[in-house]
Write a protein that binds this DNA or RNA. Structure first.
Lengths: 353, 353
DNA sequence: ATGGCTTTCGCAATCGATTGCATCCTAAAA
DNA sequence: TTTTAGGATGCAATCGATTGCGAAAGCCAT
């Protein structure tokens, strides 16, 4: 506990024989400071090992160089990739990243957003909790001009940037993919329809069926609560007991889809021969399960990067009222054996190339 | 941009007709303030919606209620679970969590630790980068009395808390498990021996062989750089081409082990019949791959919780010089089909219970 | 009523960076 | 030479919470 003193701008001022204000301005490249002085100050700062006190600056500016992140759960491949992208980009821009998870509970989302607000974050990146309907807790931020970027699970009506994928089209294409493989009765594992992502995927599914002359049968659309393995298995069990069971499943995530594969295999149902399956997200398990799961890939890392950039941009431009933009990223259908009926002999073990 | 003013202790003081110092002390339950005054101040604070300015307090105390986390990569099941555990616990204790990832590069670890230091974190939780040898960059923290907790990938010599598993015993047991299944020539996928976790696992492997009268053959110990799928496949290829190929593999992580399973299946090698495999970590892919991968489970979330608690405790007790403690958590061998030779008929598809 | 204590509280400085306004100086314009 | 426009810099206040020190007030006993 030697508690070495940190170097402050006052120390630099003394060393440079000028005032602290000059040092401050010099280090910030303020225009009213001469080139010579700037250079001198910056060199002295380096020489003396000066490090700005972010708390002091934050107090004064009522804003810290920190990006707040609010996700449902960190411990999920999508979130982890998202956060990783955010962190990487933020750090390059000189920002720190403060994280919090709502565990998909509205209540936690409210209190966490408040905690981040209290930390004077420069901006907030949010992926909504499953439960969230009301958005009042984000008003603080907009009232104070703190930029918010919603990612992936976004609200329909809120004046802020959005970084999303086109869930409708992705759902449409995933369903169409199954249709192309010859499926006639395609079931759907649907997530909470309150959340844009699941709603979009489901709408895409319905329209794809309609556009290809297939009936939309409500008994084939299974509402899920958490899209877990277990739910996936249970739903598959229910579906396969129908008088007229489906020959394809489009699941709104990979986890439930893998549950379906597992259960189908247990029943001796041939995947994809009798039942073609496609998931969503391209989680690591998708390429490992047997047969490998077809899925829709989701550019999670890139979404994080873009969100962070948006925050940094808005935070540094301050005045300019950028109209809230919605950025839509591309998804990609990854066709693996769980849905491909043409080439691979059903039952052949999967090889990854 | 209405920029509503935040309530400060000065506002409270005015409303209570007392001084700001009294308010400050009242809110912090300082003993020199009467119960009545405390209650009044706390009620008024609630009534007026007062929220302490953490930056101001941080500036004054030269310390913020924030825990810094430094991992190699966020986007990995173990790290994500660890961070999740940290976040949950930290938040309950009123702390925020600042994250950063080194991407396993020493250089990044140094600059990130510096950034966290500059943020005046109350404590630091670190899992070392693969590369790291030198620990000078953590001296700042210990010099300032800022608690550090090393997790999982820890250094051998540094005066700080450690939260780890017993890698030696885990490696020993994993190897013994294979021996118990009748394996006579067990190969090992070894991680960088500079890192305690891999070194421990490898030592456990060696000793288990010795203790059970099996020779330790260096050609069966494959040094890995990243323990990736691809490396796992490549190593398996090499091993199976040996004159006398192994009948078991203990991999230092699940990813490489899954690579081995994939490759073995491609070659038509029976797992576990001809080649029993066990991994490490119990990643989600382990229970999905076919056959399901035996592994050593790692209490990542719990490690995060404990680390966060350690930081909070040390940070709040301030004076007490707690001797740096090493906490060792239990691991568990999860025996799945990739290594179980008794009950399941080789080749039977996996069923999850 | 006075002395001696304890309890309760306020003053003012402090943490370090930022910034509006004032000031000083130099060089160009009159 | 005098005036003046700016360029370069300093002064001092500010952000909000904390805390050492001292002072006022309350209480009991003598």
């Amino acid at each position: 506990m030697k508690a070495k003193k940190e170097v402050t701008i006052y120390d630099l001022a003394k060393a440079l024989n000028c005032s602290a204000s000059t040092v401050s301005r010099a280090l910030n490249n303020h225009k009213s400071i001469s080139q010579k002085t700037r250079k001198a100050a910056q060199e002295m700062a380096r020489a003396m090992g000066y490090r700005p006190n972010v708390l002091a600056a934050g107090l004064r500016n009522n804003k810290s160089k920190t990006i707040g992140v609010l996700v449902s759960r960190i411990n999920r491949p999508f979130s982890a990739a998202l956060i990783s992208g955010i962190e990487e980009t933020a750090r390059k821009a000189g920002y720190n990243v403060l994280i919090s998870q709502s565990s998909d509970l509205y209540e936690n989302e409210v209190s966490n957003s408040r905690a981040l607000y209290d930390s004077r974050v420069a901006g907030l990146i949010v992926s909504l909790a499953m439960e969230t309907r009301d958005l009042e807790h984000f008003r603080n931020f907009s009232d104070q001009g703190i930029p918010i970027v919603f990612v992936d699970r976004v609200p329909d009506a809120f004046d802020a940037c959005r970084v999303v994928i086109d869930n409708y089209t992705a759902g449409y294409q995933a369903t169409k993919h199954l249709i192309d493989q010859g499926c006639k009765r395609i079931a759907h594992f649907a997530g909470s329809q309150h959340r844009n992502i699941y709603d979009g995927r489901t709408r895409g599914y319905r329209d794809a069926l309609k556009d290809h002359g297939l009936p939309v049968e409500e008994e084939l659309i299974i509402p899920f609560k958490t899209l877990s393995f277990k739910e996936g298995r249970k739903a598959t069990k229910k579906l396969m007991r129908l008088e007229n069971p489906p020959d394809g499943i489009f699941s709104a995530n990979d986890t439930a889809a893998v549950g379906a594969i597992m259960y189908a295999k247990k029943l001796g149902i041939d995947v994809p021969g009798q039942l073609a399956i496609i998931g969503f997200n391209d989680d690591p398990i998708a390429s490992i399960v047997e047969p490998p799961l077809s899925t829709v890939s989701h550019p999670a890392g890139k979404m994080g990067e873009i969100s962070a950039l948006k925050i940094v941009d808005q935070s540094e431009s301050e005045g300019d009222t950028t109209p809230p933009e919605t950025i839509v990223l591309e998804t990609e259908i990854i066709a693996r054996q769980s849905s491909l009926r043409e080439f691979p002999m059903p039952g052949t073990p999967a090889l990854d190339r």
